[in-house]
Amino acid sequence: MEHLKLAVDAERAIGTIVLDRSDCANAINDQTVNEISEAYRSLDADERVKVIVLSGAGKGFCSGHQLGGSPTGQPLTALEDVEILLRQNNRLLDIYNGNTPMIAKVHGYCLGAAVELVLLCDLSIASADSRFAHPAIRGAGGSPNALLYPFALGFSKAKEYLWVTPELSGTEAAEWQLVNRAVPAGELDAWANKWASRIASMPVENIRIMRRGLRRLQDMAGYREASEIGADLDAFGHSGPATKQWKDTVAEVGLKEAVRRRDSAFL
């Protein structure tokens, strides 16, 4: 796989998936989404694996969706846009639909769609100094693609996070219940290994039964539907004047200056 590293520790019954795109801060695109889905399904089907740990190589976990145009270089229609977003969401829902629990191990930056990827995992541990934010909504797109934040934060805190919060540290993300636990950066690997080992020590049928039961309850609460609604609203936002203005500003002054202007009220 071009964008991932995949490994299995058969003796400990632990699989690992590492995002590895140092050229673009581990940003995800259509190919990366395909590879994440394929990697999870491969490990989920591996009888040696009881739990999977997801992490990012380099300075951070993931910087979110990779910026850029459509695969063909031509503007997307609203229908094409929503179909791409839904397809990506459905691929990532393989993590949610499978039998094998996944732990997100987060360090450095975790931005935009990367946070939604973390929310698809069963458990998450972050370094205390990691950074969580969804800055894209300040310039382009009207909604997170998967719209999973209310399930972690509740509706009021989700609005606070998306609308007025510059970013959360790993410690704050744990306090907000965006992740399960924040630990010192030097202890992150040890904590992830400890949690993975504890899950791997359990009977596989007990793990699967519990995961299926909780998934059904999440479905009853609207988890799967939220993923579809988010894609619809994100595509709607992409076709609006705010996104056009954002693209025009990037073209005029460059991405770095456009980001500075976009985030000036959040400094």
Rank of each mutant, 00 (worst) to 15 (best):
P101G: 00
M102Q: 05
I103T: 04
A104R: 09
A104L: 01
G108R: 03
G108C: 03
Y109P: 03
C110N: 06
G112W: 01
A113T: 11
A114S: 13
A114M: 06
V115M: 07
E116T: 07
L120V: 00
L120M: 14
D122E: 14
S124A: 15
I125D: 13
A126I: 02
A126F: 02
A126Q: 01
A126V: 06
S127A: 12
S127T: 01
A128G: 06
R131C: 09
R131V: 15
R131T: 14
R131Y: 14
A133I: 03
H134Y: 15
P135N: 09
P135R: 04
A136F: 11
A136D: 15
G139A: 14
A140M: 15
G141N: 08
G141C: 07
G142W: 03
G142S: 12
G142R: 12
S143E: 15
P144H: 11
P144S: 13
N145L: 10
N145V: 06
A146C: 12
A146V: 01
L147Y: 06
L147T: 03
L148H: 10
Y149G: 02
Y149E: 00
Y149N: 05
P150H: 01
F151D: 09
A152R: 09
L153I: 05
F155M: 12
A158T: 15
A158P: 04
A158D: 10
K159H: 15
E160W: 09
Y161K: 08
W163V: 13
V164A: 09
E167P: 02
E167L: 03
L168S: 05
T171L: 08
E172M: 12
A173S: 06
A174E: 06
A174L: 08
A174F: 03
E175N: 07
W176A: 11
Q177A: 14
L178H: 11
L178F: 11
N180I: 02
A182G: 11
V183Q: 07
V183T: 06
P184A: 09
P184R: 12
A185T: 10
A185Q: 13
G186W: 13
E187S: 10
L188R: 00
D189Q: 15
D189P: 04
W191T: 05
A192Y: 01
A192K: 11
A192P: 13
K194Y: 10
K194F: 01
A196N: 01
S197P: 12
S197M: 01
S197L: 10
R198M: 13
I199C: 02
A200Y: 02
A200C: 00
A200I: 09
S201R: 08
V204C: 13
V204T: 12
N206E: 10
N206V: 00
I207K: 06
I207W: 00
I207C: 02
I207M: 04
I209T: 09
M210I: 02
M210R: 12
R212P: 00
G213N: 14
R215T: 14
R216S: 09
R216G: 10
L217S: 11
Q218D: 14
M220F: 11
M220D: 05
